[in-house]
Design a protein around this nucleic acid. Structure first.
Lengths: 180, 180
DNA sequence: TCGTTATGAATGAACG
DNA sequence: CGTTCATTCATAACGA
């Protein structure tokens, strides 16, 4: 169940309006649909994840979302889900791969798919990430008292969209993420 | 910025990951790309599906994958995706049918098709499937009428006992699935 | 060589 | 969190 979005009758081939290269609207002229992250957004999120962030607090989610909105429409819940999924899938994938391995007995599997090196805690990255106004980065050891929890996600969704509505000044991002 | 003019950009970086040389042969040009199941693999998977297996557990996936590897390269995730897709598409198809029905004749469509055809089940298939070291078959269906009661499923599960559960190299498969 | 179809893969959203 | 569902992207396979 769930999905309310009526399935647009196929062939939704796209964008009539000659908007810039498509990218993703998700909110523009197109129907309501799910969030379609831009490459930049994914990049940042991935970077954050790689740096060790796994379960961002609501504050962090809000901030991240806010920053990412520079690259395109995005809501807090999207960030929330993104991390949930990314984390879950990383585990699932690893689990599956391991099973394969144990099963295959020998066979040299040097490259584990496109796995990421385990944690590793990139200090360096953290440093850059700190440029983000993310105040607390204590995640691993943190007590996840927040944990959205879908209703909260929804709440976050309506609660605050952009902490800084004015679109004219979302300047910092460029700088902060330039390292990416 | 936002270059990506390429058609739809979905960030699908197809991921390098230098796929493990997909030495997926089985009579084709060996393209390194996605998994291309062999006829035998598809057959077995289809049988399993028809017998009622819809959402194999991680263990089952692992086992199935392991067994099927005899017929050609295959990974757990392939099995996972296969079932996901197969189930989803069946449902989608059914949904489409139901829609048509509702437009012409309301009625009838209710129960029959929500899942697989009810009866007719595969005593035969079960039998063959027992050859598989799939221990628990208890998932047969989501929440709905099942094809063959859970009892039977369970029975089927524990029934077999082909001693090859510890082989590691793909051995007996030939025999057990020869019926296919 | 192209257009179409079938299906592997990925992922946002959400459930239990 | 692990799982499941829906939808979409991408590409192998196929037909003309």
């Amino acid at each position: 169940m769930s999905g309310f979005c009526i399935a647009k009758a196929r062939t939704h081939l796209r964008n009539s309006s000659n908007n810039k290269n498509n990218s993703n609207d998700y909110g523009s002229g197109t129907k309501c649909g799910r969030w379609n992250p831009t490459a930049e957004q994914v990049k940042v999120l991935t970077e954050l994840f790689r740096s060790g962030l796994r379960t961002p607090s609501t504050d962090q989610i809000q901030k991240i979302s806010s920053q990412l909105s520079f690259y395109g429409k995005i809501e807090s819940k999207n960030v929330f889900y993104w991390f949930q999924n990314h984390k879950a899938r990383e585990r699932q994938k690893r689990r599956r791969v391991n099973l394969d391995f144990s099963e295959m007995s020998h066979n040299r599997q040097l490259q584990y798919y496109n796995e990421e090196p385990p944690a590793a805690k990139a200090e360096r990255v953290i440093e850059t990430l700190q440029l983000f106004p993310l105040n607390s980065f204590n995640d691993a050891a943190d007590h996840h008292q927040y944990y959205y929890g879908r209703k909260e996600a929804a709440a976050a969704a309506r609660g605050f969209s952009c902490g800084f509505s004015s679109e004219m000044d979302h300047p910092p991002l460029d700088l902060r993420l330039s390292f990416l």
